[in-house]
């Protein structure tokens, strides 16, 4: 069963790679005819991706929450979120940016070693900590929230590029391929609007579990501190956008800053071996 999961995983990656090429081709040439195949490849890749996760999970008797496995889950959530986005806004430009990121995450997970699970070396108290439904939801919700932050960052990046071009009054071929300012701005805002409550809930579940199992100094773990920072940045983002009417450029910068923190957190979670929250290692 693990072999089948492995094959499905690589086929999903191949399909995402094909989708990336097709999305980029679609954006560059504006030919509509082939863009359908891009969506198709992404969809087929997603199904295989899902199958791979499911098969692996049933082979190992429940998904192991190792760092690379979580990365694969995040890529999965990102593709799912992107699919919904494409359906809602009927634009495929974002796919050229988001699908390769999902692919990259899977590649990193594969190279980082799906084989080297740390779970085997878990201390008994850690295993007890993980053995709860709250942890599963904690991981799933944060994976989706991260996908939302990533969508917001991608839209913000497009916003900034487009804004610069409009301000400089240069009309380039590249500009005509980008979506409009208001659309990127709206997507950036709404993505955070959806992701933020999820992130909050995920963090609360994690904290609840830590308190429940009586982990000493759980709040001093570098991952917990960093996720608090992420939460703070996006809380500020929400606040400034609604209360101060912050729009456009500043909002885009803030969203990108928040996402940089998410990436740092992801790297730290997989490299720094201190603190109690080391399952991601």
């Amino acid at each position: 069963m693990l072999e089948v999961a492995f094959v499905a995983f690589w086929m999903a990656m191949a399909l995402y790679a094909a989708a990336t090429v097709l999305y980029v081709y679609h954006v560059v040439t504006k030919r509509v005819a082939l863009s359908w195949y891009a969506t198709f490849a992404t969809g087929a890749g997603f199904l295989l991706h899902t199958a791979s996760i499911g098969l692996r999970s049933s082979a190992t008797d429940g998904t192991e929450l190792s760092g690379s496995n979580v990365l694969v889950l995040m890529a999965w959530a990102l593709v799912l979120v992107y699919f919904v986005l494409e359906h809602l806004v009927k634009r495929k430009v974002y796919g050229a940016l988001l699908v390769p990121i999902a692919l990259l995450a899977m590649l990193v997970a594969q190279i980082g070693g799906l084989s080297s699970t740390v779970l085997a070396e878990l201390r008994p108290e850690q295993a007890a900590l993980l053995d709860n439904w709250r942890v599963g939801i904690h991981v799933a919700v944060i994976a989706f929230a991260n996908a939302g932050f990533l969508v917001s960052a991608a839209a913000s990046l497009m916003y900034l590029v487009l804004e610069r071009q409009l301000k400089n009054r240069r009309s380039s071929k590249f500009m005509s391929r980008l979506p409009s300012l208001t659309q990127t701005d709206t997507i950036a805002r709404r993505a955070v609007l959806w992701a933020f409550p999820g992130y909050t809930a995920g963090m609360m579940l994690g904290a609840l579990r830590a308190i429940e199992t009586d982990v000493a100094l759980w709040w001093a773990d570098p991952r917990v501190v960093l996720s608090g920072l992420v939460w703070l940045v996006f809380a500020t983002y929400q606040f400034l956008r609604w209360r101060r009417g912050w729009g456009g450029r500043q909002g885009a910068y803030l969203s990108l800053a928040g996402f940089v923190l998410v990436v740092i957190l992801a790297v730290v979670a997989r490299t720094v071996p201190s603190g109690f929250h080391i399952f991601g290692l």
Binding site: L166, S171, K173, S176, L178, P179, S180, L181, T182
Partner: peptide, 23 residues
């Protein structure tokens, strides 16, 4: 080709830019 794609009169260029801003 993109031969007929972009606006080639002042007022159409204005419309095109407005669409780039406002969708």
């Amino acid at each position: 080709t993109a031969i007929g794609e972009s606006a080639v009169s002042i007022s159409y260029a204005a419309v095109e830019l407005a669409k780039k801003v406002f969708d």
